[in-house]
Design a protein around this nucleic acid. Structure first.
Length: 591
RNA sequence: GCGCCCGUAGCUCAGCGGAUUAGAGUACUUGGCUUCGAACCAAGGGGUCGCAGGUUCGAAUCCUGCCGGGCGCACCA
């Protein structure tokens, strides 16, 4: 609807003023109308006209459009448009198919979460998982073929630190002692070892030297394909424990990754690529290391291969990017990480751009801020007072129990997801468990409740009217693309009245709700284009408020306009559900 | 020191390809449940949009400088 109107407004400008303009319609305050444009203000100068004059002429011209009930000039020169009720109804009916297929047929590789084996899944990983999953849903809705992948360090210094602490704990290379670690405590035990290893590395010179040695040994497990030595048995078992834990955790929050790219697999390719490009002059040697000089591009210099000949994170990332490229030949790849590595990533990508410019052109790096607990508690995975992914969920669970006395997992997950997603991606996120589980205000549970309440109205009516249709099938039916769309309510109750009432088919409250529902595709489009799900959150909350206002003043069941209103409730519930689904949040029929 | 990001109501945030009277939530005050789930709705107080310039008919939004906060700047990830 929006696009058609924009085209029509542009055409009107062409006709009236003989100019080509890109018209961007906005959604003004409801009192002004359904859409607004400021083209008159833009054009006034070049046309040498008074903006109100130009706007008045444009408004007159637009009144002739069949979709437009009213057009008027306002303020300095805005043209406000009000849709006809027919146009509004059509817009809502078409809403599901109105999504712009921005990514139609494109293969998109989405990389997020990226936890390291041998370390803990921390709160940031959870944030990325939730955000990434929502982006995946958005892209899919926009027509993309999305592949979720995950990158993580199964080699590197952090692994050596954990391994050192394990060996220290076991008093040597005793893989048989792994059996003593209870299954449910494996992940936590490894996290503790990492902390112990890190402390030893920082405080004990001897341990530090041993850890550096272990780092090389871990790499050698791969080059020599060692799976049998005592050291290898410990390493491979713990590595698998990590991946098992990741998979279980992701499943519990509703994500499945198609592919893990362990660093051990990207390191050789990265090393090879960097060495090749070293020969071609992209990288250069410096103090025994291989570096990329970023200064000519306004960036800084980074080490890709250290002076021991081992690939650093930089080289592994080169390998990762190259692996994804050869595996998928994607149209676009989106990498989601914390914003502490923005500059780092620029250097890595700039270096790759020197030999694979197309690949870099297709890469988007999205970053987010740190997750903080309300109250200003700081966390550090190094010190061991880390804020783990499970801690976030546990905090929500506890707050929810306190608030409702219940333990509803769908609601708890919805709380956390919504709390994370409602904020614009980028800045730090302050998470307040109590607020997130609150049933009042802009929260996940509020929306889940709003949805369940609407479903219960529908259920109630279907129970009274036609036992034949069955409650469950009614609520399951997708009203937005329903087989029996708006005709039924219209003909039943309103078509007759509408003929003499020149004003409108819908009463004010009904129209407000309908108008709000009609915005859905525009909001999703925007969220897709900006990769920002928070637009959907803002919208859904406004939608629920609009509905509650309608519901407060308009009876549905038993009203002469019941059929039409019921249809509205259905459209509303379907829209709410669709939006929540895009966010990765469950919309139960009952809570 | 250099670079990147961020400063909007007490708190947490929308709005930032300029524009119709700066919006929500929360907290506070008040009113509304014999009626479809009140987990709701309505009303009120609360803002020099960090500060100062600039561009513009018009700036929270764009540009410059400053102040405040976060992060990053060679062999960690």
């Amino acid at each position: 609807m929006k696009q058609e109107l924009e085209t029509a407004v542009a055409a009107a400008c062409k006709k009236l003023f003989n100019v080509d303009v890109d018209v961007e319609l906005t959604r003004p305050d409801e009192q002004f109308g359904d859409f607004a444009t400021n083209v008159a203000l833009q054009l006034a100068k070049s046309l040498g006209k008074n903006p109100r004059e130009a706007g008045t002429a444009l408004a007159e011209e637009l009144k002739a459009l069949p979709e437009v009930k009213d057009a008027s000039i306002a303020g300095p020169g805005f043209v406000n448009l009000t849709l006809s009720d027919d146009a509004l109804r059509t817009a809502v009916k078409k809403a599901p198919s109105a999504l712009t297929k921005t990514y139609d047929g494109q293969l998109v590789v989405l990389e997020y979460s990226d936890p390291n084996p041998f370390k803990v899944l921390h709160a940031g990983h959870l944030y990325q998982t939730i955000y990434g999953e929502s982006v995946a849903n958005l892209l899919t809705a926009a027509g993309a073929d999305v592949h979720r992948v995950n990158f993580g360090g199964d080699v590197g210094l952090h692994v050596a630190k954990t391994m050192w602490a394990i060996l220290d704990d076991f008093g040597g290379e005793h893989p048989e002692k792994l059996a003593d670690i209870p299954e449910g405590e494996r992940a936590e035990w490894m996290a503790r070892c990492y902390v112990a290893g890190t402390r030893a590395y920082d405080e004990d010179e001897v341990a530090k030297a041993e850890i550096v040695g272990l780092n090389t040994r871990v790499y050698e497990l791969f080059t020599s394909n060692d799976r049998d030595s005592s050291f290898a048995q410990i390493y491979w078992t713990c590595r698998q424990w990590s991946y098992d834990y990741f998979n279980a955790f992701y499943a519990s929050v509703g994500t499945t990754f198609e592919k893990y790219y362990p660093e051990s697999s990207t390191a050789p390719l990265g090393l090879k690529t960097v060495k090749e490009q070293l020969a071609k002059g992209v990288y250069e040697e410096s103090d025994g290391a291989v570096v990329f000089r970023g200064e000519p591009y306004g960036l800084h210099t980074r080490v890709f291969i250290n002076s021991n000949g081992l690939p650093t994170y930089e080289a592994k990332d080169v390998g990762l990017v190259m692996s994804k490229w050869s595996d998928y030949h994607f149209d676009r790849t989106i990498i989601i990480t914390g914003n502490d590595i923005v500059e780092y990533m620029k250097v890595v990508l700039k270096s790759i751009e020197q030999f694979e410019p197309e690949l870099v052109k297709r890469t988007t790096h999205v970053t987010h801020g740190q997750l903080k607990l309300a109250g200003g508690v700081k966390m550090s995975s190094r010190k061991g007072n880390f804020f783990r992914a499970v801690d976030v969920l546990e905090a929500a669970r506890e707050a929810s129990r306190e608030a409702t006395g219940r333990d509803d997992e769908a609601m708890i997950l919805g709380s956390v997801k919504y709390a994370f997603l409602k904020q614009r991606i980028g800045p730090d996120v302050i998470y307040d468990p109590k607020e997130s589980v609150s049933l009042e205000g802009n929260s996940g549970p509020y929306l889940q409740y709003a949805h369940a309440r609407a479903r219960s109205i529908i259920k109630k009516v279907s129970g009274i009217q036609t036992f034949d249709r069955g409650g469950s099938s009614v609520v399951q039916s997708d009203g937005l693309q329903a087989q029996s769309p708006e005709e039924r309510p219209r003909e039943t109750h309103t078509s007759g009245e509408s003929l003499d009432a020149a004003s409108s088919l819908f009463e004010a409250g009904e129209r407000s709700l309908l108008r709000k529902i009609s915005e859905y595709p525009e909001v999703v489009d925007r969220a897709v284009n900006e990769l920002m799900p928070h637009h959907i959150c803002t919208y859904l909350y406004e939608l629920a408020q609009t509905f509650n206002r309608f519901y407060e003043h308009n009876h549905v069941v038993g009203d002469p306009r019941e059929a039409l209103r019921l249809k509205l409730v259905e459209e509303y519930a379907d829209t709410l559900q669709a939006g929540l689904t895009l966010l990765g949040i469950a919309a139960p029929e009952q809570i």
